[in-house]
């Protein structure tokens, strides 16, 4: 039996390079999901904050659906459902065609849905924390709707929403572990393979858990830096 240090070395003997590749997939998936989720979440929050009832209802339906479904189920529905739907669509044009949906893209879409439904709630409560006078002041000096939003509301919104969004980022990082279930070689998947081959399950799952913990700690530091920068802007204002 090989020693733990050999198993954790870099190269053909050890598994560290494989685990590192998994961490790369995990982090890039989370980073790729973040901007999409933020954008959708912001738009949904705009809809839910609107004075138009139909727009509010449409936004609320979105949140209810993606907050009510388990993340794993959303992932499966998107992964298999997208495959079936695209297959039907392509067979309409070209019978006999088979489609393989990319696991990374499916994971990204599913996580973006989940992230954005929570982010919309964070943005919505931030919107409600901004007094009406801020909008009215914007209009009074002749800014258009878009300019008021961009120049006056958004900078304040980011400051108010930041703690909630950093929480969601940590949740997103943990939720990426689920994509191992649809075969994407993320950190967890690599640990499953490594422990199956080497029979050292505790070593690898312990390592992977610590890696996630390290990612969370690094994120907290990053969030702290962003928080400080935003607060400094606040003072200068």
């Amino acid at each position: 039996m090989q020693s733990a240090w050999t198993l954790l070395s870099w190269g053909p003997q050890g598994w560290l390079d494989d685990i590192a590749y998994g961490v790369f997939i995990t982090v890039s998936l989370a980073l790729a999901t973040l901007p999409i989720g933020l954008l959708i979440g912001f738009l949904v929050a705009l809809a839910k904050n609107s004075e138009e009832p139909s727009l509010r209802l449409a936004g609320n339906i979105y949140t209810t659906i993606f907050r009510g479904l388990p993340e794993l189920l959303t992932l499966f529905i998107i992964f298999f459902g997208l495959q079936i739907a695209l297959q039907k669509l392509f067979q309409f044009f070209q019978p006999g065609a088979t489609i393989d949906v990319n696991a990374f893209v499916s994971g990204m879409i599913a996580l973006a849905f989940v992230f954005s439904s929570y982010a919309s709630e964070v943005f919505l409560s931030a919107f409600r924390a901004i007094p009406r006078g801020q909008y009215e002041g914007g209009y009074a000096i002749g800014l258009t709707d878009g300019q008021t939003m961009r120049l006056i509301v958004l900078p304040q919104l980011v400051r108010i929403a930041l703690p909630g969004l950093s929480n969601l980022w940590l949740i997103l990082l943990k939720d990426t572990a689920l994509v191992s279930a649809i075969g994407l070689p993320d950190t967890i998947r690599q640990a499953i393979i490594a422990s199956r081959v080497t029979q050292q399950a505790f070593l690898f799952f312990g390592l992977v858990t610590l890696i996630y913990l390290a990612l969370a700690i690094i994120s907290s530091f990053g969030i702290g830096v962003i928080d400080k920068a935003v607060k400094q802007q606040d003072v200068r204002r």
Partner: peptide, 23 residues
């Protein structure tokens, strides 16, 4: 609290089920 809130539930479940199975 930091450990259990900072790591995915899935990793914890794997650690308990497969990890302890190694012992």
């Amino acid at each position: 609290v930091y450990f259990f809130r900072g790591t995915p539930l899935l990793a914890q479940a794997f650690l308990v089920y497969y990890g302890f199975g190694a012992f």
